[in-house]
Nucleic acid binder design. Structure first.
Lengths: 231, 231
DNA sequence: TAGATTGTTAATCGATTAACAATC
DNA sequence: TAGATTGTTAATCGATTAACAATC
């Protein structure tokens, strides 16, 4: 029963299902239950069934989900049934990693070009994709009607480049710069701020250490109490 | 009034507050209201006050928050009051980008080493940090008691390397490989799966396009109706 | 038909938003 | 004291979990 308002959390889980289905299909598995999908993904079976039910009834009661069929449905839902053109801003190490990965390992996107201002890099190729001058970005994005951009430029120019991209027709930006971008309504920005990820991880890591210390302290106290008792 | 169970969402917002405070302090601003923090961060003022209240009362009623004081409090909360040692697995473009960024731009961490198996890379340096053989990882992690690892290796070896890291004493992994890692209880894994980010962005981008098409279609219909009416 | 598993509805849980008393 | 803004409590909203009827 197709819904209207699908939450971000649901949308973030769809690519995980897709990845698992790709693996299952490769392993010639053609039927999978929500319980098994739960094992593979870490999400609960109930959640998986509910997520999918937002978009339709794709399974067979008593049996499970046909992997190929479900994969195709999810591809359609996400919008990956046709290759999506993307551009990359920034040909530094991050931009290079993103370009290489998405050119050679991600079958769902097509990296049209990488843009940079470094004359040394312009004209070279990153996994078949040409590095082009930033000046040429606007014309190319317009010509090919590219909608998605990966932003891997230094933080000081991030807003400027983002605005240029949006003015040229980009409506979705995956932003790697540690900055809050200001964009017109209707433009989607997803932040992939690795600093935030790392710092929140450090919170848990150090909290864990603190907890361990506390536990060890309590253990030691318990031990001395025990010793006293035994005396 | 310090709480016990702090949600992940709260923890993910703390680094954002920290970044804004760093910028404010640099600009010599020493007092900021939750309202102004809201403008800078995009989160609501109420949410910011509530987030901070989980850890204590850091502001002054009627005035706002002292930027330097609040910054120090947040550093303590996250565990960034002392530099955190981290190691990077993988000296490819992603690993290189992560190492460079965290060595030169992130003052809160100390990149101890980058590990790889490529003989060509071993012995070279990435922004002062030495690339070392994977074989030496365990000993170094143990010796320096490193707790945090950034995992930027190919997906096929991700689990193996993660296990090695955990066995050596790592308790927190920022995982860039598109795979669900299996780790012992107490080990924290944060996934930074760029494919998931990109695909969910494409959902919104193409959904947006669909919505636009629908809107244009409706507009056209409305126009023809109008034309008919005028006839 | 019996067993299994989906799709859906109801109950619970948690996070965000709103409101306001406390207080600088 | 008046104005401003925090810290906290209450209300709302949304997402997850549990339960189960539908059905293969």
């Amino acid at each position: 029963m197709p819904d209207r308002t699908i939450s971000k959390s649901v949308i973030k889980r769809l690519p995980v299902y897709l990845r698992i289905l790709d693996q299952l299909i490769q392993r010639k598995v053609d039927l999978i239950s929500s319980k098994e999908l739960s094992n593979e993904s870490g999400f609960t079976a109930e959640q998986i069934r509910k997520d999918l039910a937002h978009f339709g009834a794709f399974g067979t009661r008593g049996a499970g989900y046909n992997t190929t069929f479900l994969r195709e449905k999810i591809l359609k839902i996400i919008g990956l049934d046709k290759k999506t053109d993307v551009v990359v801003f920034g040909a530094g190490h991050l931009g290079t990693a993103l370009t290489r990965y998405n050119t050679s390992k991600n079958p769902y996107v097509n990296v049209v070009a990488v843009f940079d201002i470094d004359q040394e890099l312009i004209g070279t190729r990153i996994a078949e994709t040409e590095v082009m001058p930033l000046d040429s970005a606007s014309a190319l994005i317009k010509k090919k009607r590219v909608k998605v951009a990966l932003l891997a430029v230094p933080v000081v120019v991030a807003q400027e480049v983002a605005s240029l991209a949006v003015d040229s027709g980009i409506n979705a930006i995956l932003n790697f710069a540690p900055a809050k971008l200001t964009v017109p309504e209707g433009v989607h920005v997803h932040d992939a701020d690795l600093t935030i990820e790392l710092q929140s991880l450090i919170y848990y890591s150090s909290a864990e250490s603190e907890r361990l210390k506390r536990l060890q302290h309590e253990l030691q106290e318990a031990r001395s109490r025990k010793t006293l008792t035994l005396d």
